[in-house]
Write a protein that binds this DNA or RNA. Sequence first.
DNA 1: CCTTTGTAGTTGCGTATGCAACCGAACAGC
DNA 2: GCTGTTCGGTTGCATACGCAACTACAAAGG
Lengths: 159, 159
Amino acid sequence: MQPNSALARFLPYQLSLASNAVSGRIAMEYRQRWGLSIPEWRVMAVLGDAGALTQRDLTRRTLMDKVAVNRACKVLEERGLAARTPNEQDGRSHLLDLTAEGHAMHSEIMPLALEMERQLFEGFSGDELDLFRALLDRARHQADGLLDDDLSGGGYGIK
Amino acid sequence: MQPNSALARFLPYQLSLASNAVSGRIAMEYRQRWGLSIPEWRVMAVLGDAGALTQRDLTRRTLMDKVAVNRACKVLEERGLAARTPNEQDGRSHLLDLTAEGHAMHSEIMPLALEMERQLFEGFSGDELDLFRALLDRARHQADGLLDDDLSGGGYGIK
DNA sequence: CCTTTGTAGTTGCGTATGCAACCGAACAGC
DNA sequence: GCTGTTCGGTTGCATACGCAACTACAAAGG
């Protein structure tokens, strides 16, 4: 690809390339080593961190679609990595938690995650990574928040 | 979502959130205004920039899958935004180029793209955006280049 | 109570994506 | 100039994803 083409300099495009490469890489590691998808890994990470939660809690904490959470939970349960217990307070939901086997896997998984993160971004200072986080956050919130009005009638020939 | 959970601080996750939000936002604008998907928009951007190209050229310049390029080209042709002419030098391929209508759309599309990019990242200096690009590039190349060997046997309990 | 409204979880379906197999044209070696 | 190999493009298929519709339960209001 031409390194200086307009497309190659377009930040949303560079963001997409980087995200796809990083996610693809991590997905491959988890699939090969433990047969976990990224949604499944995210659910395990949160459960290992926070303990028993409902699916609703998990969707809030992971920002994933409730369907994605449901499917990940179903797989984890079938594999014996998590178990559902009825929720005394609310018969609609159940509480999910890691089994002993799930905890064992969790304790292998998290160090690898942190090690991959370190390798992906090694060579940059803490300040630089903080700025990186700030930029990612800003782009995300701008993207969520921009209204159509903000971009219409700006004088570049769009009726 | 808990802002300080381990998952929320995990950079690959933040990268994925930002990329999804930005791509989703841009995809929505292009779909609503012109009925273009992101692959279609990318092909138009490159064709408008570089002139007639083969699909093979387009896959190299956009880093998209050749199937994605093919499908985008097919749609653009059906909509009369691009046209294929036989390639004199090589009968296997054809040359794609924007039609007059395609050029007209291209001249509306590109300013909107640049305006969206500006709004998404306004409030950051040129230096900060350069660092952002550098970090995205580094993460991408590290992700593409890391070998399994780099992560195995590192002493965090993985057989 | 019974009805209405809201919420957690599940399922079905349409869309997007990408790989792998395939087809036809070009090119290399004999 | 025939044969085997490579390459551009296309199609089929299998998977991932998310919305919308649906079920089961809960809470509020009369």
